[in-house]
Write a protein that binds this DNA or RNA. Sequence first.
DNA 1: GTGGTCTAGACCACA
DNA 2: GTGGTCTAGACCACG
Lengths: 139, 139, 139, 139
Amino acid sequence: MLHLSINQTDGVPIYRQLTQQITHLIASGRLTPETEMPSVRALAQQLLVNPNTVVRAYRELETAGLLYKKQGAGTYVAPQTATPYTEEECRRLLSERAEALLMEGWRLGYGVERIIELVRECNEQLWGQGGAHKEEESS
Amino acid sequence: MLHLSINQTDGVPIYRQLTQQITHLIASGRLTPETEMPSVRALAQQLLVNPNTVVRAYRELETAGLLYKKQGAGTYVAPQTATPYTEEECRRLLSERAEALLMEGWRLGYGVERIIELVRECNEQLWGQGGAHKEEESS
Amino acid sequence: MLHLSINQTDGVPIYRQLTQQITHLIASGRLTPETEMPSVRALAQQLLVNPNTVVRAYRELETAGLLYKKQGAGTYVAPQTATPYTEEECRRLLSERAEALLMEGWRLGYGVERIIELVRECNEQLWGQGGAHKEEESS
Amino acid sequence: MLHLSINQTDGVPIYRQLTQQITHLIASGRLTPETEMPSVRALAQQLLVNPNTVVRAYRELETAGLLYKKQGAGTYVAPQTATPYTEEECRRLLSERAEALLMEGWRLGYGVERIIELVRECNEQLWGQGGAHKEEESS
DNA sequence: GTGGTCTAGACCACA
DNA sequence: GTGGTCTAGACCACG
């Protein structure tokens, strides 16, 4: 099961949220070449979006060379052609979001420490306190 | 100087980024009634944005009752009519972003602790280590 | 008025017929850079197809670098980046069709001369006998 | 050896190219009743196509009454039941292709005469100048 | 007015 | 079952 999160209300086109997140999963090595992607219909149902939206995301990723399709047999992660993200790129991607979070916090009167506290709480809600996903630290 | 940050590339309409952020500033009390807003031209120049975009944001905020115009004398924050954000609403707004940050981190192979570390670094870059904005904690 | 001809019944996706024909028009110099393309809606109406089909064709031509869009102001032919067709390429493109025509003629019992006769007749029907489009010979 | 030409890249389903061309061969009398068709495997190999595709084409032609199978003994052209193409139908079929050729030529800057010249050249390449298939003129 | 996105649902091709 | 294409119509962003 792919961990993809889409936001229906923030104005970012859904197909773009998908292409971005899948790109990141591939570039970070979480999705390895030859992995079978969920079918268009399955992913559409999982995310509660229209299948055509998934079709478009898959198509753009295919033209970008990140996915490929086997006739009538599904969609697969293409063998690595582009170089994966460097540590530097990852930091930049995440810094953008972290910065947005801090700014928003500031606007609402939250300081760093309260933000971080909130991040911890969200993390526990997402993964459960049981220590699941602990291995993420090292991957 | 207003702390507004816009992102030209993420697909979110600029006018909407503006209305949202200004709304938050007002709702959290950071922008108080009768404060004069920057002129359309000034803000457009500051943000490197088409003046029409600022016009639209101001217009929508005026319709919403958050701003008002004095003929020929500028745009001002309206007296508080709507209730400001509750603690609950603030948490929800920020949690959304925190969650998106955590998910993106997971996709790129970052765990909570490395994310938090990154948040601290971003914070220092934003405000400088010198302790500026220290007062944010208490507001 | 663009001379585009689509065939709803031959199984070739309409968007592909469009991209191919427009590509040829550009590559052969019949559509010059900075020419404004017909609007999505106008072309859809002219060809009696769904606007989304035209949207798709335009989008693919844009990612291919042959067209570009001005925000809210229409679609334009991009400055020539790719090299236009060589005489050789034109011949190859047309030879494929000519060959298909000859094969089909053969299957139906038509020899070369009757085929050529038919081509002449079609030509007159298309452009009228009055000599319109005579200048095509030299362009 | 059947003269069938398939195009893997133009989007027309292969099985349909096959059914169409075989239909034309039968309707024009080039394939006479009780002629044995090539085996599925042989034709698939000749055309470099998946055998299932040939199976499908044969199946549709069988349903249409143009072919029939002798159990374990191959596939045969059925006795003429449907009326063969009239002169009128042939012209229409060929005119479509001729028109497409002329339009494409126009887009690429070719006039009628150059198109016809090209048709003659293709014809010679296809059959050789030696006069093979000369009899086609009279069939 | 322009293009951009999305939905819902249809039909087709391929394995 | 898979993906591919198309339609009809909605709503949005931008000028």
